[in-house]
Amino acid sequence: MQGTDPLVQIQNLDVSYYTKGVQAKALHNIGMEILPGERLGLVGESGCGKSTLLKTIMGVLPPNGKVNRGSIEMDGRNLIEMDEKLRRQTRWAEISMITQSALNALNPVQRIDRQIIEAIRTHQAMSKEQAAERVSELFGMVGVDPARARDYPHQFSGGMRQRAVIAMALALSPQLIIADEPTTALDVIVQDQIFSRLRQLQQDRGFAMILVTHDIALVVENCQKICVMYAGMIIEAGNTRDIIQKPRHPYTIGLINAVSVLGSVTAPIAIPGSPPNLFENLEGCRFAPRCPFASALCHQKIPEPTTLENGQKVLCHHWSKADEFSKLAKSPETWMQSTTATT
């Protein structure tokens, strides 16, 4: 894997929202890269900045969101500084997206084929008939009867809608597809069907994929690499196997703890408390208030990213004590302490 150039490389990315003059630092010093054909999982609680990161990559931040620093490089071009017109051409053609809620993402008053054809014809000189042909082909790929292409979104079941959205994402054969919680609204069986279809498509067509989710189990099943986000920062990143076996950040430890493993004796332990308010001035490690292992240092100073020899990156002052933390984290009392200590 060494000699390959990254497909997309994000460096030192800072993004803030401004509401009535107040700044919320939604993303802080984000750095990550994704190689061609790679499956990367981006994990975090809601409100951790996942959506902001996606919107920044897609270039659709709302008007009050601003990129203050950093770059997103793709094929030697910095997407952030790109001219808006050129930028528009890269959208969907090079990076497309499978959106979170397929029901709301499809325009309710337009036929599905029309919405996909629109995406195709915005970027490629193609007749309507050719584009319609392409839609049938895409529907075949995702496993929906092409005869249903002229239906309206509300006539589809949840699973079919999600497949239609996947078909739309594949329409222009992009190099990168971002899947944002693609199956949250679906039941487990449909969820599995969709993921196996997605994995298969990914292997056949070789696009890279970022899977964004709050569910670390999904990432373990589907991705080779993982990035863990907390309060606008990537606090741990690396190969999925390494991180699951040896998490170095207390938050990651907590996340893995929170997943129930079939056959395990202990009940899953949720991390108590909630993420910090990003409108406030944050000092020190952003996880410190919820961290059972936080020291005085953690409350004062933001930790520097550390890269281990296996390529794992971690953002914690006390990463070296992670093995010990992992053991302590198994008992629910450890987590109770942290909440009582900070409240």
């Binding site: 659709v60 969907w92 959106t99 809620s101 709301n104 993402a105 325009n107 915005t122």
Partner: peptide, 12 residues
């Protein structure tokens, strides 16, 4: 709305 954002992401 999500569909408006999606339209924008489609490069319209």
């Amino acid at each position: 709305e999500d569909y408006v954002e999606l339209a924008r992401m489609k490069g319209l």
